[in-house]
Computed example of a mutant assay.
Amino acid sequence: MASTVTNNLRAAALIALALAIGAMGIYVGEVDDAPGAGGIGLLLMIGTVVLGVKAARNRLPAWAARTGLAVGVLIAAFAAVLTHAVALTVPLFAQPQDVPSVIDSAPSPQYSVAVGRARELVRAAVLEQNLPGVSVAVGAGGTIVWAEGFGWRDVDTRTPVTPKTRFNIGTAASAVTADVIASLGLTNTGADAATAWSPERIGEPGEDFPPLTLIRHNILQPLGLAPAEYPLPDDRATFYVPRSDDNPRRGRRLMYMRDLACCAGTMASYSTASDMVGVGLAKRVSVNGELAGGIVMSLTTLRDSGIVVAVLSNIAHANTSALSLKIGDAFAKQAR
C-alpha cells in the first residue's frame, strides 16, 4: 500500500513538473530576447515529453492523475506569468557602455567634443527609455558631420543599427515626397509594401495559426528546417510597439500590420538619419514622424546655428524629439 501511494505521488509530481517546464519552454521561446531562446525553449519542451512519458508508465489511478493535472496547471500558470513578466521588463542594456554603436566614417574633428557629448546623450536615452535601436545624424555648414547607429535593429538576432539602417518614418513621409527624393538624390529613402515590414502579416487574417507559428519558431527554425523572418532584409529595422500604454520600458511586441494603417495604408515609408538630415539642410524644416500612435523619429533644424539633427528609433513612443534638441544644443555650443 505504501509503495502504491509513493508511486502515485511520484507520478503526480512528474506531471506537475512536466507541465511547468512545458509552460516555461513556450514562454522562453516566444518572449525572451536572448540569443538561443528558441533552442532553450525546445529543450524544455522535450523535457516535458520525457517526464510525461515517464509519469504515464506509473499507470496512475484517476484521482491521482486529476490531482497531478490540477497542481501542474497551477504551477505552470505561475511559471508562465512570472517568466512572461520578467522577460518583458528586463532592460535591453544594463549599462551605457553595453549599447553597441556602428559608425561608417570618423566624425568631423571640428565637432569631436560635441560628438562625444551626443554619444553620452544617446546611450542615456536608450537606457532610460529601453529603446531597441537609434540612428542619429547631424548636419552643419551644408554637409553631414556625424552619423552613427546605436543598439539593435533587430532584438532577437541582435543585428546592430548602422548609419545605413532604414527606419520606418511614419507620418514624416509628408516631408519626403517623391519630388523631394528625386531633387535631392536620396538613395535610402522611399516606400515599400507594408508586408515587407511585417513579413508574418502580424495582426492580419493571413497570419499563421498560433500553434503553427510556435512550431516554426521553436522547433523548425532552431533546427534549420525553416528560414528565419528576421532580421528584415535590405538593412530594414524591425519595428516594435510598447506592449502596454505608451511606455517602451514595460516591454515590446512586434509591429502589427494594422499599426501601419494610420499613415501607410498598403505602403510604408522609410529613410535613414543621413537622408533626413539632407532633407533638413535643403528645406530648413523640422518634423516628427508618428507610427502606431507614437513618435518614431524627429528631424530638428536649429535655424540660428544652421544645425540639423535627425534621430530615428525602431519603437513607437520613443522621445526622439527631446533627444534631437539636446544633441542640437551640444553641436550649437561647439559651433559658437
Rank of each mutant, 00 (worst) to 15 (best):
R201A: 15
Q129T: 04
S3G: 11
L254P: 12
T48Y: 11
T238Y: 01
G39H: 05
I103F: 00
E30N: 10
S101P: 00
D154H: 09
A175F: 06
R249G: 01
T171N: 07
G38T: 08
I40G: 08
V296T: 10
V73P: 08
T195F: 12
I307F: 06
Q97G: 12
G293F: 00
P107K: 01
P163I: 02
A2K: 13
S324H: 02
A23Q: 15
T195V: 15
D234Y: 05
S271A: 11
S286V: 08
V311M: 04
Y240M: 02
V90H: 15
F209Q: 10
R66W: 11
R10A: 13
R250Y: 06
V155F: 00
A56W: 08
A118F: 07
D104W: 01
A76E: 02
K283W: 06
P160V: 07
S3Q: 14
D154V: 05
L17V: 13
R201W: 15
G185S: 10
V241G: 02
E148K: 05
F78N: 05
R250W: 07
T89A: 13
F78Q: 03
A64M: 07
T238K: 00
T83P: 03
S183L: 08
V308N: 03
A34S: 10
D33W: 12
N7D: 15
R250S: 08
A125D: 14
G22M: 10
T162F: 09
P160R: 08
V161S: 03
V5D: 13
V138E: 00
A140H: 12
A124E: 14
M297Q: 10
D156K: 12
G293P: 06
A114F: 11
T162W: 07
I144L: 04
A196Y: 09
L121W: 02
G190R: 09
R243D: 07
N58M: 10
V28I: 15
G133Y: 01
S112R: 14
V285D: 04
G139F: 00
N314H: 00
D179M: 11
F167N: 09
M276C: 02
V138S: 00
V155Q: 04
Y27S: 11
L220K: 05
A322T: 12
T159Y: 03
T301G: 09
T266P: 00
A310M: 05
S324Q: 04
S298T: 13
V86A: 14
V31F: 06
S286R: 02
M267T: 15
P222R: 03
G142D: 13
R249E: 05
G328M: 02
A23I: 09
P163N: 03
A182I: 02
A125W: 01
S108D: 09
I21H: 07
G116K: 14
P210L: 11
R158W: 05
R258M: 05
I40W: 12
R153E: 02
P96V: 03
R336L: 13
A193H: 10
T195M: 12
G280Q: 06
D208G: 13
V279L: 01
A34P: 00
S244E: 10
Q221S: 03
L232I: 05
S108W: 00
E229Y: 14
